[in-house]
Design a protein around this nucleic acid. Structure first.
Lengths: 237, 237
DNA sequence: GCGCATATTTGGTATGGACCAAATGACGGC
DNA sequence: GCCGTCATTTGGTCCATACCAAATATGCGC
């Protein structure tokens, strides 16, 4: 049991317990109602709600209200099962929407990672992915035109891994993944139906061929409360 | 560039930029000073500071002040390089302290993961690990006495992997890792010199032998701003 | 029943003041 | 120079209030 010596901690523990016992489902009462119930100021209540949000127990829809979080999606960035595959396997209804596709020059970070100079062109797509009608991740995928000739001529709203396999014959690739917590700002926060400054998880991925030449650089911005990273491996001491 | 239509966002962007340009290092001016500088109320300023904290740019020492974050530690939970190894390799000064060791009955979650009944005993240790004098992670390690006979008779302040290898002959093991964002509460928050409700990253690890029998269950609570999870793999489409 | 304008509710932003506890710094005695 | 004591500074908690913008509910006309 956590510390309950402060008002916000008591409110937090009470609500947290009600959620655990499933006495609280769907959407919560309004902040002003909760203030009255627990006899605290709105700022104190919002401190409690903020912590419950960080615990992944509740989330907010912009100016609409607070809701109890659905269960988390389990995701292994090292596996190459598709989004469709691993979400449906866990009983979710997935959907993906391609938001934008453009050809552009790489930023410093990408140029560095893909060992490109600033003039080489890059094909970038932005897509949002949802489960059960709730957007959980915004993905920015960047492909090096130099290493994947004419990639911008293909339909990138279809499966990218199939494209890499069939058209570019990348059957074996190396993954470089980084996961860190981050802050979500507009416009990404808006895609995720959350607020400017919300908490998120950032997954960065560099994809290389077996010679070590990098041809893809991805950034995934996840709702922090929608995701649990999972990973299995065999180790030799 | 992020949204700056609000006061807190402007303060955030200004300070963020000063940190990026290294005009701001070490500890920040006091909150009341910053309020005067940016002409905002303290709660507004604290909202900005809170977001910079979530971005991993600044952190606070309890009732002492705000400080610019040192660089993050890179950590691959799937590798079996020791804490000592990977921290020094990155130029940090590591240290570990064993806080507590006890023999106890497993909680529900652990009993379930290790397939024990509630009566089987468990040897648990709690240790804190620091880099450059800053505590970054609290680890709780739990060993099944049934599968590792007399483990409580050994000195668990030494390297556990050496013990597993030499005494119990576990040269090959299976790892089940989960990473998710979490909230840090007392007393763990206190070990990490942070506040009740601070943001963290939780790493859960189940260790099995090659037959799949689990004998160890670990929980790591990391400062969210101290850690970047890294992972490399070769994949076959 | 449907569409549209309007009123209401909701969270989001922001202010300013108050008090507390712990960390820090200054001071004095030794 | 060291070690306690005490005053000051600092962030941590909490309150009451106000106004805004967007989401939602309401009710009217058709």
């Amino acid at each position: 049991m956590s510390d309950t010596s402060y008002a916000y901690a008591q409110v937090r523990e009470t609500i947290s317990q009600q959620i655990a016992e499933q006495k609280l489902t769907g959407n919560l009462p309004s902040e002003r109602e909760l203030c009255a119930t627990y006899d605290v100021a709105r700022s104190t209540l919002r401190q409690a709600l903020g912590q419950l949000e960080h615990m992944g127990l509740i989330y907010r829809k912009n100016r609409s209200g607070w809701y109890v979080c659905p269960r988390k999606l389990k995701y292994d960035p090292m596996q190459h099962t598709s989004f469709l595959q691993y979400t449906t396997a866990q009983g979710f209804q997935p959907s993906t929407k391609l938001v934008e596709q453009k050809k552009q020059k790489p930023c410093k970070e990408i140029a560095n990672a893909l060992e490109l100079d600033g003039r080489t062109s890059l094909t970038s797509i932005l897509r949002v992915r949802s489960v059960d009608g709730r957007t959980v991740v915004v993905e920015e995928l960047n492909f090096s035109n130099k290493h994947l000739p004419n990639i911008d001529k293909h339909d990138l709203s279809l499966s990218i891994s199939v494209l890499l396999k069939n058209t570019y014959h990348h059957h074996n690739v190396l993954y470089d993944i980084a996961v860190e917590s981050c802050c979500l700002f507009n416009p990404i926060a808006q895609y995720l139906n959350t607020y400017d400054g919300a908490l998120g998880l950032k997954v960065t991925r560099i994809v290389r061929d077996l010679e070590g030449t990098a041809f893809e650089f991805d950034r995934e911005y996840w709702r922090h409360d929608a995701l649990m990273i999972e990973n299995k491996a065999k180790l030799h001491f």
